[in-house]
């Protein structure tokens, strides 16, 4: 982090304020209407009324998970883009989320999660870690835009079909319906158990990624100069790999794949960060929280009855951006 200048500071304050507003909106969104003052008093109430249960056990964990997962996705996107020096890099596009989902699916449907619940985030983490390493193996860490995207597409589709395979072979007849959850992501009906399950690895992952800011700034000048500025490239690589695996891995293990957050958010905030990858990290984290909260509110507003999947909304917002970035980078490739 070079200089948290006035512009970045102002935007951070604004984004944090927005998080509060959206959190309240998120708490007030659901099939049953509850007025705002009831919601706020419900947060502190000890009584076992159905309103309190709805707020404390259903909506609050959902809002908290939006915040945690949004932070992980926004930050991971910015960190990956900074590290690979490629604005198209995103956990969803390069296959990290897909492999995290595969890991979580294997662990969950094999019944391991019923034995030890921590197995679920561990599965997600392992999947994410394998994908990052696989990507490095397939494309190399400083390869061109196209190679990384191609490798990512290959990993994503492999992970997607393996996920579907595992779900089809799962002994439970509901498993096949749940392909939608894993591939499109949702935060519906999650509970505090999920919050507890992922909070520590997620915070550690986020912490690790936030420490890479200065190194990512240095990498702006290429690997040799970054190294000559005193940064250990191997250490940066492993910090990123472990950080992404922790953050994205555990996030996906409870929410399924929520795509494009890591793509859109850093892209929108880059001008505010004056293109510095370091300062973009905390900004993207805040931005990711906002986008995920907003998308999860939208999901509940637009769909009556059975909910739209969250990933559909983020993909609808995100894919035009992706196309725009592809067109923009096409001129670079030629």
């Amino acid at each position: 982090m070079i200089k948290f200048d006035r512009k970045a500071l102002l935007w951070s304050v604004l984004l944090i304020f927005l998080i509060f507003v959206l959190s309240l909106l998120s708490l007030s969104q659901g099939p049953t209407f509850l007025p705002l003052d009831t919601i706020i008093s419900s947060l502190y109430s000890q009584a076992n009324t159905s309103t309190n249960i709805i707020i404390q056990e259903i909506r609050l964990p959902r809002t908290l998970l939006s915040i945690m997962i949004g932070a992980a996705l926004g930050l991971s996107g910015a960190a990956l883009q900074g590290y690979l020096r490629n604005p198209l890099a995103e956990p969803g596009i390069i296959g990290v989320s897909g492999c995290a989902a595969l890991g979580a699916v294997i662990v969950f449907y094999s019944g391991l999660t019923s034995i030890i619940s921590i197995a679920l985030p561990l599965g997600g983490m392992a999947g994410a870690a394998i994908s990052v390493l696989l990507l490095g193996l397939l494309a190399g860490y400083k390869s061109s835009v196209m190679t990384i995207i191609l490798a990512g597409v290959a990993i994503t589709s492999l992970a997607g079909s393996l996920t579907s395979l595992v779900l089809s072979l799962a002994p439970n007849p509901f498993a096949t319906f749940e392909i939608f959850f894993w591939l499109l992501g949702s935060l519906a009906d999650r509970s505090f158990e999920h919050v507890k399950l992922i909070v520590f690895p997620l915070v550690i992952g986020i912490g690790l990624l936030l420490t890479t800011g200065r190194a990512l700034d240095a990498l702006t000048l290429g690997e040799d100069v970054a190294s000559s500025l005193g940064f250990n490239l191997q250490r940066i690589k492993w910090t990123i790999v472990i950080g992404i695996s922790l953050a994205v891995g555990v996030a996906v293990s409870v929410s399924g794949i929520i795509g494009f957050v890591g793509l859109v958010v850093p892209h929108l905030l880059r001008p505010i960060a004056d293109f510095r990858p370091g300062i973009l990290l905390p900004l993207s984290m805040l931005g990711g929280i906002n986008l995920t909260l907003a998308a999860d509110i939208l999901v509940r507003v637009v769909s009556q009855g059975p909910e739209l999947k969250l990933g559909i909304v983020t993909a609808l917002i995100g894919s035009p951006f992706f196309l725009y970035l592809v067109i923009k980078s096409r001129s670079k490739l030629q």
Binding site: E57, F108, G111, E178
Partner: peptide, 18 residues
């Protein structure tokens, strides 16, 4: 006896509380 998210809904703590 076999795990599924669908069935997990019935184990949601909110249901336990109600």
């Amino acid at each position: 006896n076999s795990p599924s998210l669908s069935q997990n809904l019935l184990k949601h703590p909110a249901l336990g509380k109600i």
